[in-house]
Design a protein around this nucleic acid. Structure first.
Lengths: 269, 269
DNA sequence: GCAAATTTGTTCGTATGTATT
DNA sequence: CAATACATACGAACAAATTTG
């Protein structure tokens, strides 16, 4: 059974795009009417083909203008630090990470601090009953002005009651919240667990990252739960990154040099 | 500006699905004809709404049968080991990982071994010129019979020339290829770098994992490059996992207990 | 095993709305 | 304002897959 016509058209266009016949990076494709004539198909069928290409991020459409070849993105490479460099952690680095690459300017929003009742994930990770009061500190991070990640850290309220008052100030904790807790309360983060996950963005994330609504681009979600010496959760940080422009690198043991910022391509058998 | 009608229908159905009004896990939705009547819309408009739901993995359709509420998946949780437990590595664990959870039976295919000319990623990561001969060892892994991951490890040919003959045997290296190299040649893997990436599956991966062709489900790609004491690449392992049923966990320092196999849900502000 | 009924999949045509130039 | 191009919506017909009688 042959592929449906829309799929054949889509594959033909894909091949033409990837081989560069249709130009690259912002070059307009023929209009739907022209494609309709080229392939002797109805406009709706051509549109089905274009929809498939849009879903693969090969083209994008703009009302009233046309359909264009999508540019290849140069991904941000975030290095997740495995060692215990956490002393250098700032609030803006509450999720210990480092953006690699030259000529890239990271900026961070001021934290938005909320006092709220723990639900779902925060309650579970902090091992407190639902409804327990927790502190939430939320920040948005940009690279070269482009939204890069959002993160929210939840702390149990008893940390404030025991003296860590700055947790409820809407100001950056320059030395790093984890380090602040250690200096102020003598509570050390003895270890942490990271969970990696990929899921579709919720509405807020979609708006912040300007992601399309069609579920074509997922987000990385990294949940980092930190524990003190007794194994009691100290904090949980949820960070999300759009998956279309982010990569993560981790290193263990002795590793030479700086990783080239390469985007892997397809299969390698 | 109100949402288009197909979107309103989609949102209404989404709400009905998530609140359980339409039943769960395999319950059929009303047929397109019924929905057409319910919403006073054309069949094509109803179909646009359903397409959106399919894209979010909320429903799936089966020709000749109907549209059904998609089951929630219980994800595999893979633990990426950060320490140097690599001595316990088998070929089937060449990518040091551990599947968490009870009642889960991992199985591994026999390796498919190929001798080929390095291209693209393998050449780059092994720091050899394109065209250099390398060994490729490919394996497929299943959990409870469900395709779980595919991985290909590339080794420089000179390892075989220096005595590591078993690399080119299509048999599992039980003690682990990395350990075998150390015992046989005295070459130790002093460190490694992991790159995490999310991309759409290629054709092979789509077929192996039974992923839909519409680009709705991406794959995790983890590229692990191992280096010897002098910083020379020893091997590069490319492992892919379908993103819809996999999560990754890493732990650093002292972390209590076993992580609950929770799926995070939505936003947590 | 076959035929009918049901349901989704594909393709066409057409009309109108909205965004951009 | 007009022209162009994509977006939405309707209606219709037939194909393909599946279940049922």
């Amino acid at each position: 059974m042959p592929d449906p016509m829309w799929k054949q058209i889509a594959e033909d266009l894909r091949q033409k795009i990837e081989s560069g016949v249709l130009g690259s990076d912002g070059k307009p494709l023929p209009t739907e009417l022209e494609l309709q004539a080229d392939y002797s198909a109805s406009r709706n069928t051509v549109r089905d083909a274009i929809k498939w290409l849009v879903g693969r991020n090969l083209v994008y459409t703009r009302s009233g203008q046309g359909t264009f070849v999508a540019p290849k993105v140069d991904p941000f490479v975030t290095k997740l630090v495995a060692g215990s460099q956490s002393s250098a952690e700032g609030d803006s680095q509450a999720f210990t990470a480092e953006v690699l690459g030259l000529r890239r300017l990271p900026t961070v929003s001021l934290p938005r601090v909320e006092i709220l009742a723990a639900t779902g994930l925060p309650a579970r990770e902090l091992a407190v009953p639902r409804g327990t009061t927790v502190i939430s500190r939320h920040q948005q991070r940009y690279i070269d002005g482009v939204p890069y990640s959002r993160q929210t850290t939840f702390y149990p309220m008893h940390l404030v009651e025991r003296g860590a008052a700055r947790l409820i100030n809407a100001e950056d904790i320059r030395e790093g919240a984890v380090h602040y807790l250690e200096r102020e309360l003598g509570i050390r983060e003895a270890g942490w667990r990271d969970r990696f996950n990929v899921r579709l963005p919720d509405q807020d994330e979609g708006a912040f990252f300007s992601l399309p609504d069609d579920g074509r681009i997922p987000v990385f979600e990294i949940v980092r739960t930190g524990y003190d010496d007794s194994g009691i959760p100290l904090r949980v940080t949820v960070t999300t990154y759009p998956a279309d422009r982010n990569q993560f690198v981790m290193e263990f043991g002795r590793v030479p040099g700086v990783p080239a910022s390469d985007r892997s391509e397809g299969s390698h058998e």
